[in-house]
Computed example of a mutant assay.
Amino acid sequence: MSIRHGLLALLERGPRYGSQLRTEFESRTGSTWPLNVGQVYTTLGRLERDGMVVQDSEDTAGHSLYAITDEGREELRSWYGAPVDRTSPARDELAIKLAMAVGAPGVDIRAVIQAQRHHTVKAMQDYTRLKAQALDSGPADRDEVAWLLVLEQLIFQAEAEARWLDHCESRLVRLAAAATTDPAPAPPVKPRAKNRR
């Protein structure tokens, strides 16, 4: 997830200071990806170094306000216009866990899958409940629409994960069934010892 581009998008709406950017970022994403203020200021420092933002002025409380530059706007437009690259997918802890659990001694992989499925379905129900609450609250402003988009992505992602877990379980059942129907390999024949006289 690009914090860099998220901050540029917020700055395009006008100058902001770090804590304000953090609050608006979390509001827009429903605190799905919490930021700490140090992360925001580190990213602002890099953006400033790269000519994407400048310290514009201070507000009445003495906070340094950052503003997007023309280079920052161009970077933001490029980001909006380019598809998200899927050629180097992020590491997925669940996929790694299941890959390592296959054949691991003492690990009941079906129990691992069941525990994850329970967690995934509960998360999907929670996200769906949050979506219903958001829709019941009346007309949506820009931040509420953004939050709904994030929630719907989380719901679809949880649905896909549940389907994938079903697939993993059925594959393991087929593999186990195939292993029990295959004849066991014959034990190796030991060469006879020659009689010595």
Score class of each variant (00 low, 15 high):
1 M>V: 04
3 I>A: 11
4 R>L: 08
5 H>W: 10
5 H>D: 04
6 G>T: 07
7 L>W: 03
8 L>Y: 04
8 L>G: 00
10 L>G: 01
10 L>M: 00
12 E>G: 13
13 R>L: 12
16 R>L: 10
17 Y>P: 00
20 Q>R: 08
20 Q>S: 02
20 Q>H: 09
22 R>S: 06
22 R>F: 02
23 T>D: 10
23 T>G: 12
26 E>V: 02
26 E>K: 00
28 R>Y: 06
30 G>P: 02
31 S>D: 08
33 W>C: 03
35 L>C: 12
37 V>N: 15
37 V>Y: 12
38 G>R: 15
40 V>W: 06
41 Y>C: 10
41 Y>M: 15
42 T>A: 14
43 T>P: 07
45 G>E: 04
45 G>Q: 06
46 R>I: 09
46 R>F: 08
46 R>A: 12
49 R>I: 05
49 R>S: 08
52 M>R: 12
53 V>P: 02
59 D>W: 06
59 D>S: 03
59 D>L: 03
60 T>A: 15
60 T>W: 15
60 T>R: 15
61 A>M: 11
62 G>M: 00
62 G>V: 08
63 H>C: 11
63 H>P: 09
65 L>K: 07
65 L>A: 03
68 I>M: 07
68 I>S: 06
68 I>Y: 01
69 T>P: 01
69 T>I: 06
69 T>Y: 00
70 D>A: 14
72 G>I: 04
74 E>V: 12
76 L>K: 11
83 P>Y: 10
86 R>T: 14
90 A>H: 14
90 A>G: 10
90 A>M: 10
90 A>L: 10
93 E>N: 14
94 L>H: 05
95 A>C: 04
98 L>C: 05
98 L>T: 02
99 A>T: 07
102 V>I: 12
103 G>K: 05
103 G>L: 00
104 A>S: 13
106 G>A: 03
107 V>S: 08
107 V>P: 01
109 I>V: 03
109 I>Q: 03
113 I>A: 04
115 A>M: 06
115 A>Q: 09
117 R>A: 08
119 H>R: 13
122 K>R: 11
125 Q>Y: 04
125 Q>G: 00
128 T>C: 00
128 T>E: 04
129 R>A: 06
130 L>A: 10
133 Q>M: 11
133 Q>S: 10
136 D>F: 09
140 A>N: 10
141 D>A: 01
141 D>T: 02
143 D>Q: 14
143 D>I: 11
146 A>N: 08
147 W>L: 11
149 L>A: 13
149 L>G: 14
150 V>L: 04
151 L>N: 07
152 E>I: 09
154 L>S: 06
156 F>I: 12
157 Q>W: 07
159 E>D: 10
159 E>T: 07
164 W>Q: 09
166 D>R: 10
168 C>M: 12
170 S>T: 15
172 L>G: 03
172 L>R: 04
172 L>W: 01
173 V>I: 08
175 L>E: 03
178 A>R: 14
178 A>F: 13
180 T>H: 13
180 T>Q: 14
181 T>A: 09
182 D>I: 14
183 P>Q: 02
185 P>A: 02
187 P>A: 09
188 P>W: 09
189 V>N: 05
189 V>Y: 03
190 K>R: 11
190 K>H: 09
192 R>P: 07
193 A>E: 03
193 A>I: 08
193 A>R: 05
195 N>H: 12
195 N>G: 06
197 R>F: 03
